[in-house]
Design a protein around this nucleic acid. Sequence first.
RNA 1: GGAGGAGUAGCGAAGUGGCCAAACGCGGUUGACUGUAAAUCAAUUCCCAACGGGUUCGGCGGUUCAAAUCCGUCCUCCUCCA
Length: 381
Amino acid sequence: MNNKDFYLEIKHVCKQTGARYGILHTPHGDVEVPMFMPVGTLATVKYLSPDELKELKAGVILSNTYHLWLRPGEDVVANAGGLQNFMKYDGPMLTDSGGFQVFSLSKNRKIEEEGVTFKSHLDGSKLFLSPEKSIDIQNKLGADIIMSLDECAPYPCDYEYMKNSVERTLRWARRGKDAHKNDKQALFGIVQGGEYPDLRKLCAEELVKMDFPGYSIGGTSVGETKEVLYKMLDYTLPYLPKDKPRYLMGVGSYDAILEGVARGVDMFDCVLPTRIARHGALMTSEGRLNIRDKKNEYDLRVIDENCDCYTCKNGYSRSYLRHLYKCDEGYGKRLLSIHNLRFLVKLMEEVRQAIKEDRFGDFKDEFFEKYGLNTTNPRGF
RNA sequence: GGAGGAGUAGCGAAGUGGCCAAACGCGGUUGACUGUAAAUCAAUUCCCAACGGGUUCGGCGGUUCAAAUCCGUCCUCCUCCA
């Protein structure tokens, strides 16, 4: 693709940690990194309008190839002029390749060299997704950033299986790159290799040889502990080029985000903030708050005094939010989702500021101290 | 005044001689959730010094080896007729 359409401009590297602050230029505008990207699988971040996403400064929105392929079909999206125009979100977007569904729908699929055969989770019909097909769909969906089809292997996974899987993922990356036809879209390669240092290194180096405009770290958030996740990062990041964006896939707990940033990750995405919001769990500057708890019944305080989200700013009380939650009202899910997303987006704003001021290491330490992580809630969120 | 019907755990509601501390739903409490098959899932919810024990099915009194379940009586509520 044209370098003028998509590139990472590193503006500052934290002297304490090596964390990077930069501007990611995309065809749909510039975004600052490190950043958190909300997930909108079916061309919508559940319950939120594009206006609300803009207000909370969401930046890049993720969507999903597998799900949009099934419904409404990539041609329907292409007919509307691509994802942004279809869902009326005018910021940058990213589509995942369907690689995660190779993992999450594992009971209904079969992996072969040519591609993956899925049994549709909707009607059971037989579907076949290849690296070329995934890229073709993503070309039609039209996101700014697209992903290679990979195998997101389970955890734990034995060495032999992982080695074969990595080699196949590399062949798929090559095939996807050759099939990629839309030069307005940046195709990222995905590093797999589980917890095996040599496989992570091999995968990263081989992908770098293919020269992608950005690199993802995959095979994470599949049940491994935080310690293993950090090892995976340590085994991968040193082999990725400094001038290209690095995207840690599926990570959204705030401790893992901070550890990722410290290691040089630029992009994160996760369903966690929106999903747990729908399930009544909120991220606050004092840790987790379960809105459904009876202790909130008469509590007129907002979720978090330090939050500037729409929900907190407008004084929606815990009492009211609990009421909406218990009545299963959609507006409650919306208000809670807005809060959690804004919490993470704002956290990233603070992260960037700290990097610019060469104090990200201190910021991270203070944050962990303040939030009491690794004590009551070792996994964070 | 007469005739029917009903009273079961916080609420609703099954159960109508032993397998009943009593289904199920709601409510309550607690976990979980990480490139979204997720407005989901799991545990727990009479009391206690708890892999055991104690007290329950409107009240009281009976029958029985055994009662939420059968009998008597009282109380309360509902419907219909006067």
